[in-house]
């Protein structure tokens, strides 16, 4: 397969534009996804940063939650940042009542674990699979991963807490590479999408 992969960004709410820019910079065709028929046309999907409760509600409200779950179960490559990480967790430690997730990664996530906005921070993070310098991690009211199941691989920690995880074709980070201009993590995800397409054909 030599054609460029098409990667959607779930555009219900959040920093969609920054992900579209980062994906394009990492040599993917990037487009926003708000409807089931748009979801059907992508080779991979990013679930952006935003408010996880809002994204979850809108996904249910507009009939996206079940199609999202079905495609992720069927092996669609997905990458979630911050709120997106929460959306990809099989379990939330402290969900708001009725807060649902897409799931896909066998992990338990704690929302706003690093604190409120005054505790939000930036720090260098070494990520397994990312060559060269450490990634600049922006942690904004960020979650962390309490624990992962046997199938999930921990890619990075900060201060003793898991902040990046991969399980098969699913990737999640507590931090926001889309806000830094460093597109290496998106590059890793685009590679995952390419490999998945090759494997499928």
């Amino acid at each position: 397969m030599s054609t460029t992969p098409v990667i959607g960004v779930l555009a219900l709410q959040g920093d969609v534009r920054e992900h579209l820019v980062a994906l394009a910079a990492a040599d993917a065709v990037a487009r926003p996804v708000r409807r089931p028929e748009e979801l059907a046309e992508v080779d991979g999907l990013v679930v952006p940063g935003g408010e996880s409760t809002t994204i979850s509600k809108l996904a249910v409200l507009f009939g996206m939650m079940e199609p999202l779950r079905a495609r992720v179960r069927a092996g669609l490559p997905v990458y979630g940042t911050c709120a997106g990480m929460i959306m990809l967790a099989d379990k939330i430690l402290d969900p708001r009542s009725g807060q649902e997730t897409i799931g896909g990664i066998d992990m338990i996530v704690r929302r706003n674990a690093f604190g409120r906005q005054n505790e939000s921070f930036e720090a260098k993070v070494d990520v397994l699979g990312i060559e060269g310098d450490a990634v600049e991690g922006l942690f904004i009211r960020a979650p962390w991963v309490e624990s992962v199941g046997a199938g999930a691989e921990v890619l990075a920690e900060h201060d003793g807490h898991i902040v990046a995880v991969r399980q098969g074709t699913a990737l999640a980070t507590s931090f926001h590479p889309e806000l830094t201009g460093d597109h290496r993590v998106h590059g890793l995800f685009v590679d995952m999408v390419r490999e998945n397409r090759t494997a499928a054909h």
């Binding site: 219900l12 709410q13 959040g14 935003g50 408010e51 939000s120 922006l138 904004i140």
Partner: peptide
């Protein structure tokens, strides 16, 4: 409290 952390917070509110 860096500019990126402050401005980045507002980026998360977009579309909302």
């Amino acid at each position: 409290g860096t500019a990126r952390v402050k401005r980045g917070m507002a980026e998360q509110l977009k579309g909302g």
